[in-house]
Design a protein around this nucleic acid. Structure first.
Lengths: 131, 131
DNA sequence: GCTATAATTCGCCACATGACGAATCAAAAC
DNA sequence: GTTTTGATTCGTCATGTGGCGAATTATAGC
């Protein structure tokens, strides 16, 4: 983003971020990612939504700069942005973390996530395909 | 809000806030209120929306705890929450302020607001009713 | 009391958004 | 090269959201 149009599109970039945060499932994803990098099938398993739905949520988070993605073979791994790239949205993520770290639903997600992390990702995908 | 259900509804309260922030007009209102207390007709004048629409936006912001309201006769004056009440959302408002303070649209709003503040509020309402 | 008036609520419409399954894409595995 | 497979895109549908004008509310002024 060049310096001269940074000002004129700030409000659009900002709304991309706030709109991305204005959905329960996307907030749940962000809170899970605080525990570290995850692949799509692991997020699908915890949220219990269709893979296509989760993929869409992740693309919205990505467009807002709230997550980073890197592909490793067929596996796409998502994580919270680090370093300079994440400086812009870090205050928001830490506010979110503070307000939700004791929330019952979020705590349950994290507990489920720990269980899911012990599974073979391949077997998760296989089960998800069966539905 | 009692202590025992604070955790269980944190995510709902949080989403009320993020959803409230996920709209251009409501963000514009918050940025205007950084300049101080405003009555509805002044906000209507700058946003150039129907009074009923603005009123709805203000009720959403109010439900999220992002603004305070006090009635003075027929006039309703809105402002950013102060003191303890605003502590929860202050980090968000300052993030918003930082990211948008140089945005072209927001700067224009503030300039228009200064002009509007020089008008008699009663005359603003009269003009708005004519539309 | 009656009228005027600032603001809100209501009813309606157009459009945006989130969900799914089917189809597609792209990298591995054979 | 064909098949398998993790992920994404597309098409569709139900629901949510933002906008307006009309009706309503509540207070001030006569």
């Amino acid at each position: 983003m060049t310096n001269q149009n940074k000002e004129s599109c700030a409000v659009r970039a900002t709304l991309r971020v706030t709109k991305a945060l204005a959905d329960l499932q996307r907030v749940r994803i962000l809170m899970m990612l605080k525990r570290g990098e995850l692949c799509v099938c692991q997020i699908v398993e915890v949220l219990a939504l269709a893979p296509s739905t989760v993929s869409k949520h992740l693309s919205i988070l990505s467009a807002a700069g709230l997550v980073d993605m890197r592909k490793n073979g067929r596996w796409a791994r998502y994580r919270l942005p680090e370093g300079m790239a994440g400086a812009f949205i870090r205050p928001l993520l830490s506010w979110l973390g503070n307000t939700l770290k004791n929330d019952a639903d979020i705590v349950r997600d994290v507990r489920n996530l720990k269980r899911v992390l012990n599974c073979d990702p391949g077997s998760l995908c296989r089960r998800q395909r069966k539905r």
